[in-house]
Amino acid sequence: MKQIAIISGKGGTGKTSITSAFASLTNNAVFADCDVAAADLHLIFKPEIKETFDFQGATKVSIEQEDCIRCGLCFNLCRFDAIDRIRNQYYVREFSCEACDLCRKACPVSAINKIDKKAGDYFISDSRFGPMVHSQLEIGEELSGKLVALIRDNAQEIGKAENKDFLIIDGPPGIGYTAIATITGVDIALLISEPTQSGLHDLKRSIQLLDKYDIPAVVIVNKWDLNPEMTKMIEEYCKTEDIKILSKIPYSRKFTHAMIEQKTIIEFAPDCESSVLLKKAWKELVSMI
């Protein structure tokens, strides 16, 4: 089974629209929505959830005020500024807590407890394109590489058990931990870029990240005709980096219209220019891995 990650440096370039287009073009794939911060693939896939699992996430802590002797050790040890001191009482600022657990282990009177808090759910589902694994994080929860790894592992297992040809991963924007967890070990990463200064800037950062982890990359420039000169700059940059431009897709309202009808662009307008180009791109992508 070959693994394809679809990512982008910048958000909103069309990752999910292109992932779902490819879903229409293969009948033997399993899908993973690893954009855990803004998981939207299910809006097109309309999956039927088969199994739901709790995602525990990182174990955070809270301070039992009755037991606390106000020694301030936790406050001094915490390197994440995650402990607030308010009128000589200590509180955990949950959003800043990186769950290192040092304060709890170090507390001389064991006044700090772990909180078993669900950080979200992840789902194994069926869809008209095949099985998919996706998730829903609770608000403010840590963008977790662990959750991405869980989603990928589950999708991989399903793919192997059902003899799938492809694992197609809808990835996150950015270059952080979730992006790293999405790309490690995939056969190829498809970067979706757009012809804007921001698009090029972020594309460069993504390519550096892929380079660091030695992942082969190809690029699709989406909405290329919104700025042909910028598209040219992206092409030139990719040439110097020896990265293939798989396709250039023109700006089209049809992507939004398809989204509104909860369809892929291939389902919505199979013969439109974007669909034709994406069919060709998919064929070529498959031939490369």
């Binding site: 911060a37 803004a38 608000i139 929860e141 950015g174």
Partner: peptide, 14 residues
């Protein structure tokens, strides 16, 4: 701020 509704966004808008 950072996009999304996770911890990084919350840190930005806290």
């Amino acid at each position: 701020s950072a996009p999304g509704t996770s911890n990084t966004t919350v840190e930005s808008i806290y």
